[in-house]
Write a protein that binds this DNA or RNA. Structure first.
Length: 157
DNA sequence: GCCAACGTTGGC
DNA sequence: GCCAACGTTGGC
């Protein structure tokens, strides 16, 4: 039997949005540019077909707007090796990569985006890491939390 | 635009 | 190895 895990990734829509993901070839994007060790470690735990909540941050109504799936497991984030890239980091080299990324594929839009505000007030979601560690851009979600959020996103509250 | 939270850097 | 300074994120 296969088990998969659940995650939440955050993105500022002005940089890369849910719509951008859906518009990508095969609805698939490299989740590059993560430069935080804890987030990196979580990405290295991600497995094929793990489920991902896609969250829009730094907007008036931050919210989970869709679901995605991991289609490629952790591999070196080569943008760290490109001096002109905004995510360049000289401490990472092809021989000794420091940063990793995964590929995710957009799966399902949530017709009723699940706002941060509603997450705060929904029983069962009060322990979400999002509420305590708002700055962590890749974080685990429990199966129970996943279920509640996807249900809310599909049918509203 | 402000500010709190918090991760990272660097001097010692 | 400590800790102050600094930078970044993200909610409001």
């Amino acid at each position: 039997m296969t088990t998969h895990r659940y995650w939440l990734v955050k993105s500022e829509p002005s940089g890369f949005s849910w719509a951008d993901l859906l518009a990508s070839p095969d609805r698939t994007a490299e989740w590059d540019g993560v430069r935080n060790f804890q987030a990196r470690n979580y990405m290295r735990e991600m497995k094929l077909r793990d489920q991902v909540l896609f969250y829009h941050s730094s907007i008036p109504q931050p919210a989970v707007v869709g679901t995605a799936v991991v289609v490629r497991e952790g591999y070196p984030d080569f943008t760290a090796w490109e001096p002109k890239n905004i995510h360049f980091d000289p401490k990472s080299t092809p021989e000794k990569p420091l940063w990793y990324m995964v590929d995710i594929q957009g799966k399902e839009a949530l017709p009723y985006p699940v706002t941060l505000e509603s997450i705060k007030h929904t029983p069962g979601l009060e322990k979400m890491m999002l509420l305590q560690r708002s700055r962590l851009s890749v974080q685990p979600v429990t199966a129970a939390e996943w279920k509640i959020i996807v249900a809310l996103g599909k049918q509203g509250s």
